[in-house]
Amino acid sequence: MSADKKESGLARVLGSASAGVCEIGVFHPIDTITKRMMSNQTKITTAAKFNKVIFKDMSEAPLGKRLLSLYPGLGYAACYKILQRVYKYGGQPFVKEFLTDHYKDDFESVFGAHTGKAMLSATAGSLIGIGEVFLLPLDVMKIKSQTNPEAFKGRGFLKIMKDEGVKNLYKGWGWTVARNAPGSFALFGGNTFAKEYIFNLKDHSSASMAQNFGASICGACASLIVSAPLDVVKTRIQNKNFDSHETGWKIVKDMVRDEGVSSFFKGLTPKLLTTGPKLVFSFAMAQTLIPAFDRALGPKKLE
């Protein structure tokens, strides 16, 4: 199993944070559309209904105002996305290095050298994805601002924390963990698999931007397909009013009864077309920027 170059912690933070900032600037409106599509529980049969689902109360407003309505909760989104990308893209290499130092031989003996490296990276991604649940309150606030702004009633984050309590802000945490574990496993595993088998890279940090984008496409598509059903349930839990006590299992039961099994893949096509490029973009940017920052910091970098 070939070893990748180890970048500094500072380079990982700066590279992944920069990727998060770029992602927010480009993709926040698309993310809003995706979340509103996933939260919709009715059939869309006409352009007028589609317009209502996407733009909600602003569906009859002029085009400029309708477009601005796709930027709700930008502050929450920025805080969440930047912290998430720093944690996920910057943290996964540390977990992977720990697993490599202690369990490389075990992975190699079971899966072989190349596949073992992909599986080790996937396992590190899965573990980091599970820990991502600590950012859930910011994710809840972002999703509610995008799909159910009435839940805020003019309150800010601190006021909502005081009024609703930690329990409500971590509503859906179990479903988040259940989504993140396989989703992050597929994301990092697919990415590493592509670098090993498609691009034949010995040192993954030496990948070009084009190679990073190609590998990220493989990882992102695998991640979105694997995590889609749990992501729909998670989103529906989080977009309810704070005083809602509807459980994830009840949502699952109602979806099967009222909308059919295919409802678990609602929004998958727009998600592959919208969230897919967003995930590919941020993941590839992080993998490109982290080594770039590492080289720029040179001998002054923080270890």
Rank of each mutant, 00 (worst) to 15 (best):
Y103W: 15
N212V: 06
E23T: 11
I30N: 02
S121F: 03
F134Y: 11
A122Q: 08
I24T: 12
S216Q: 03
I54G: 07
G189D: 06
D57M: 08
Y71D: 00
V110F: 11
T176Y: 13
L74N: 04
E60L: 07
S69Q: 01
P149F: 04
Y87V: 04
L302W: 12
G298S: 00
G267W: 01
V256N: 08
K240R: 14
Q211E: 15
K43F: 02
A296W: 12
K65H: 10
I24R: 01
M1W: 03
G75F: 07
F55G: 05
F94E: 12
F94A: 10
K81C: 13
D203E: 08
F213T: 15
G15H: 02
S262F: 07
Y89R: 03
V233G: 10
F185M: 11
K195A: 04
F185A: 09
M141F: 13
L68I: 04
I251M: 09
G73R: 04
A181F: 14
Y80G: 08
A122R: 09
G298T: 03
S8M: 00
N212A: 07
Q238A: 06
F213E: 07
A178I: 10
P229I: 06
K6D: 13
L273I: 09
N51V: 02
A296G: 06
I24H: 02
M37T: 12
G112W: 00
F242S: 00
A210V: 10
G129I: 05
F111K: 06
K159Y: 05
I44S: 00
Q84I: 00
N168A: 14
F193K: 00
C22A: 15
A194M: 08
I128P: 03
V110L: 12
T274W: 09
G73H: 05
G64M: 01
L63H: 09
M255T: 10
G125P: 01
G214K: 11
K96Y: 09
C79T: 13
G116S: 09
N148R: 05
L272Y: 04
N40W: 01
Y87H: 14
A77C: 04
A292S: 13
L68F: 11
K195S: 03
L158E: 01
E303K: 10
I54P: 08
F188R: 05
A220C: 07
S59T: 05
L289A: 11
V13P: 01
Y71R: 08
F157D: 10
S223P: 00
I251R: 07
C79F: 13
T247D: 09
A3V: 09
F293N: 07
S8R: 02
A17M: 10
Q238T: 08
L230K: 07
N239D: 13
A222Y: 00
K81E: 14
